[in-house]
Design a protein around this nucleic acid. Sequence first.
DNA 1: GTAGCTATGTGACTTTAGTTACGGTATGCC
DNA 2: GGCATACCGTAACTAAAGTCACATAGCTAC
Lengths: 201, 201
Amino acid sequence: MQPLLISDSLLVKLKSIGSLRKMPSDSILMNEDDYIQAIPIVLNGSIKVMRTDEDGKEILLYYIKPGESCVMSFLGATCNERSKIKAIVDEPAEILMLPISKAVELIRTFPEWIEFIFQLYNRRFEELLDVINAIAFQKVDERLWELLKKKAAMNNTKELAVTHQQLADELGTAREVVSRLLKQLEKSKKIALSRNKVTIL
Amino acid sequence: MQPLLISDSLLVKLKSIGSLRKMPSDSILMNEDDYIQAIPIVLNGSIKVMRTDEDGKEILLYYIKPGESCVMSFLGATCNERSKIKAIVDEPAEILMLPISKAVELIRTFPEWIEFIFQLYNRRFEELLDVINAIAFQKVDERLWELLKKKAAMNNTKELAVTHQQLADELGTAREVVSRLLKQLEKSKKIALSRNKVTIL
DNA sequence: GTAGCTATGTGACTTTAGTTACGGTATGCC
DNA sequence: GGCATACCGTAACTAAAGTCACATAGCTAC
């Protein structure tokens, strides 16, 4: 996966028309059924995108990393619809908020912009397909293990600061299930457990 | 859901540059890992888009209906990637095959084209999210019932010509499970069963 | 008709996951 | 220290889904 999809000249252009916003962890960038006001472009930090159920259950869809944007917001914006997802800040993030009107204008004036959007769509589409594969065909223990590895790769550390509950939420299952499976992984020497921490061995 | 997303003028333009192909039921329009040669636009009939697992299991993602296109192919084409999905003809279809080069050109020359693509993305994205919701949060019996209703609505008939095995494949589960659940639906007078046929009451 | 195929029905069992319930433990705060 | 709070461990149970085995039923071709 490439680190940055966005070119320098496009980035400069975007910075000139958008407004910068710093957001701490766990702040909510967007909620399900929100109307979309602006298109967020993540400059650094990361955003966690979740799908939620009526009765509060949720599941992790993907992360938005630096240089990426939330395509859902672009879709929603151009089609004037409500958000179907919830986006919360994972690592504290600097986000460039782009007014919709400007974003639409850019399609005409900056051909690279559309290229950027398409690439993002592609990535997100694939990630959604991966999620579907995972929940349709994989067992929870595999999914948990892969989630741990993904988190380790993303944060570039083997020490993950997470609770069992958080992992359970991201997988869309119960805390007890995660605790059980983590214990198994510990027994098979793949991880070590301590409070608020999972260490990959 | 609107019947047609595509405007007449755009359709005329597309017809002038694409080649028409008639395909019978069950012919394979695209397979996982195929390279994408052309962008298909469905004029009539319908296409079933599935995601498959390494070991043969599969799950229905969505249907492509008249006036729509397979956005995956557009994504794959613009980013020069392989298909991540399998597309097979459901109802016998007439399909307009659009060479990729022309499709890319259209972005510049026909602004409406890009609008069309974006609308499709939006629809497909939502459908994928619906699939995720379904497999993550719903039980198989609910999903089966909704699948039956969807099929009835789509084909505009209450008599569905399907086998239990086909339904099982679309749900990504086993035939026995579907048989059992269909029996339950029959007992609760929601459907009637006979060979190769499910009738919604 | 009947052989052979495909489709369906169903019981029994296993595996996986979700639920309930509660005890124990680390941590921070007063 | 002592208490409150969040976090973790685990047993016991239930529910859902997947698997296995096999019986039966309907259709087609000869």
